[in-house]
Design a protein around this nucleic acid. Structure first.
Length: 723
DNA sequence: CTAGCCACACTTTTT
DNA sequence: GTGTGGCTAG
């Protein structure tokens, strides 16, 4: 059999990775080095050459998009049917599949529902109210972060020590315990729970684990640097009897530490698995030599790397353009002007990516792009199935599928408003709590008992019959008609139509789009009831296909969402201290390194042209601030950078003390300090002013002290002396 | 119970 | 600048 097509067109390192015969194979795949290709070809190699059955292969990714792409490419490389029986999916999707198959053993009801982060937060808000916690002192978001953080590490409330009643910990624990209880009662599980339960399912049921261990002989993991503790433990458990595992990842592109990703898992891998072969993919097929040199130089400032240096056979290409903007408007103008120039040079709009650190930065860019008549698309942002109107529609469908879905009832019992106010819902909740019933059953009981005032009772009764009517009408109809009837009869369409503003129309359109999505939906699992399957899929898939627009447009996105993408021309805007690296991440060296990896991700998105820009003065959240050029730019060798000179603005990127512009000078004069000014503080000693913001009494300066590191000081109280 | 007003906060995001 | 949530008047 001719299998040369599997290895042709691969470089030596890629071939090593594809054909490696070790128990553990760790592929350190640099940006643009053909990572997915290696994964797909390795699967083909295992099947076609080593004779492994597709049935015994498990491939795990983080996003549905990556899973889809992998499946598509496997099909393209092998003939369509060969991959039948192969498990390819996201961690969460596979966990869901396992739990559906073994719900009882996992301690879950057969019809358990997934609680997405939005519903989780709403639930926590309710718990906070129930426990009479003051929202300002105890923000529900914090509880959410606390709970998810611990679950990502595999800890349930019972595993956490409150150190003898520490106030913060014991309060958080109280919330965590109550949350676990409510979830159990309602038969819902959140995203972190999905993974944790799947792990416990295997850990506590040796027979089930054994079944999957017999089956999966080779496990492949994509974006391995993003795995958290539970995901890694799950993989280890599955492969603990010496099955092969291939992990593909890049420690330099680990940017999700804040949501539980453990970069250490990469180092751990070769320690845990005897006979691990490490393959480095360093040849880059994406970017010019200049861009790669910049990326290499930047990332070399991080400690504790596995070590890797990108190179290309291609040309050095253009230098990196650096523009010092006067303010964020000037920066946006620079970006739009250059985009115009690129478009004149026959770049397509979709060839251009504009990346920023935080979402708030997109507004000004959008204004200027609109003014210049350049179509753009904001990539990422709110997902289709997360939109308010879509979640409302799905809530109705969920109630139709299962009356006892409390989360869904809470969401739409008074949306659109129908006279069921807080008081009535409170009575319902109380009744439900006391009698251990779902909200739906409580509502039925309360009406029968006549426990409500006439008006509220009528309102509630009409809600119940609305659902019953809807349910009866939807019986046996095709999925899209069920959706169509539901959004119409529930009054959601009318509700959103009469909302004011442009948003109203978009919301109605999204609801129409949901019908289209339902029409196009077909479950892989033909046994499952279509509505149920559709709802599960909606919970696990962001549905960004729906949000796709097809007009050729410039792509705007955060640096995080740019990971995995590439563009012939890339702009990275706002390369300023305090913004990028973000001020929330500057104190902690590990988080600073993660910011640097984010910069590395950004730079390596560019194929040919890279533009960096920063603003000497920036208005963000209504506050004006003055920041210096990002340290990340200063870590790029000078000879790779071309300073753009426009309007007599000349900048020297390599030092803090830059030429100042009039506005900065004026602001500096008004508070008495400029960037680079040496000052003396009575306690902290000598330091240098590295940025400042605000005016008058609220003016603050950031000083980098020689001994104490950098601190923000309120000017009024700091008593700084000029040196 | 609802609507309208004001205060407040605000990194990054997938499932 | 924008969205969310709490409070108050009708």
């Amino acid at each position: 059999m001719d299998v040369s097509y599997i290895l042709d067109d691969l470089n030596d390192a890629q071939r090593d990775a594809v054909t490696a015969d070790s128990t553990g194979t760790l592929v350190l795949a640099g940006a643009g080095s053909g990572k997915t290709r290696v994964l797909v070809h390795r699967i083909a190699w295992k099947i076609k050459v080593e004779g492994l059955s597709a049935y015994s292969i498990l491939a795990v990714t983080f996003t549905n998009k990556a899973a889809r792409e992998m499946r598509g490419r496997i099909e393209a490389l092998l003939d369509g049917n060969v991959n039948h029986g192969m498990w390819v999916g996201t961690f969460h999707g596979l966990a869901h599949r396992l739990l559906k198959a073994h719900a009882r053993e996992a301690g879950l009801p057969d019809n358990f529902q997934i609680l997405d982060s939005d519903d989780q937060l709403r639930q926590l808000k309710r718990i906070h109210r129930e426990l009479e916690l003051d929202d300002t002192r105890w923000p529900p978001r914090q509880s959410q972060y606390f709970i998810n953080g611990h679950k990502d590490e595999g800890r349930r409330s019972a595993h956490i020590d409150d150190f003898g009643g520490d106030h913060y910990l014991s309060t958080m624990l109280k919330v965590y315990r109550r949350y676990e209880e409510v979830c159990r009662q309602q038969g819902v599980i959140d995203f972190a729970e999905l993974l944790l339960r799947a792990l416990e399912l295997w850990r506590d049921n040796p027979a089930i684990l054994d079944h999957y261990q017999q089956r999966f002989k080779h496990v492949l993991v994509d974006e391995f640097q993003d795995t958290n503790a539970v995901q890694y433990a799950w993989l280890r458990l599955l492969t603990s009897k010496g099955m092969a595992m291939t992990a593909v990842g890049d420690d330099d592109q680990s940017i999700y530490g804040w949501r539980g990703a453990r970069i250490e898992n990469i180092q751990q891998f070769s320690k845990d698995i005897p006979n691990t072969q490490i393959v480095r993919l360093e040849q880059n097929y994406r970017s010019t030599g200049t861009i790669l040199k910049a990326a290499n130089a930047l990332i070399a400032n991080n400690s504790q790397r596995m070590g890797k240096e990108l190179w290309t056979k291609g040309e050095d290409g253009d230098k990196i353009a650096l523009f010092a903007a006067f303010n964020e408007q000037d920066e946006a103008r620079f970006v739009t002007d250059r985009i115009d120039e690129l478009l004149r040079d026959d770049y397509r709009r979709s060839d251009i990516g504009v990346l920023y650190r935080s979402n708030a930065q997109s507004r000004v860019l959008e204004e200027y792009l609109i003014r210049a008549g350049v179509p753009y698309r904001i990539y990422g942002g709110q997902r289709f199935y997360d939109r308010l109107e879509i979640k409302n529609a799905l809530a109705y469908l969920r109630i139709i599928a299962l009356r006892d879905d409390d989360t869904a009832i809470e969401r739409v019992i008074n949306t659109p408003t129908r006279g069921i106010g807080n008081r009535t819902v409170e009575i319902l909740r109380e009744y439900a709590r006391q009698h251990q019933l779902s909200l739906w059953r409580s509502a039925v009981a309360i009406i029968e008992n006549g426990m409500l005032p006439a008006r509220a009772g009528n309102a509630l009764r009409s809600f119940l019959s609305l659902i019953e009517d809807l349910s009866a009408q939807c019986q046996d109809l095709p999925l899209d008609e069920q959706v169509s009837i539901t959004i119409d009869k529930s009054g959601l369409i009318a509700f959103h139509e009469k909302e004011k503003g442009e948003k109203a129309q978009a919301r109605v359109e999204n609801l129409q789009e949901l019908i289209t999505a339902a029409r196009g939906y077909s479950s892989e699992d033909e046994e499952a009831e279509p509505l149920r399957a559709f709802l599960d899929q909606a919970a696990l898939d962001a549905g960004d296909q729906q949000a796709d627009e097809h007009e050729d447009s410039v792509q705007l996105m955060t640096l995080h969402s740019a990971k995995g993408l590439e563009f012939p021309a890339v702009f990275i805007v706002g390369v300023e201290e305090n913004l990028f690296p973000h001020k929330m991440s500057m104190e902690d060296p590990e988080r600073l390194e993660e910011e640097r990896r984010l910069a590395y991700v950004g730079i390596t998105r560019a194929e040919q042209k890279l533009y960096l820009s920063y603003a000497e003065s920036r208005r963000l959240h209504g506050q004006e601030s003055f920041n210096s050029l990002s340290r990340f730019v200063r870590e790029i060798p000078n000879e790779l950078i071309d300073e753009v000179r426009i309007n007599n603005t000349v900048t020297r990127p390599s030092s803090y003390a830059q030429s100042t512009t009039t506005s900065q000078q004026a602001a500096a004069a008004s508070i008495g300090f400029g960037l680079g000014q040496r000052v003396l503080h009575s306690i902290f000693g000598a330091g240098v002013v590295i940025s400042f913001e605000g005016q008058g009494a609220s003016a603050r300066v950031q000083v980098n002290f020689e001994d104490e590191g950098s601190k923000w000081l309120v000017l009024q109280y700091a008593n700084l002396q000029l040196l």
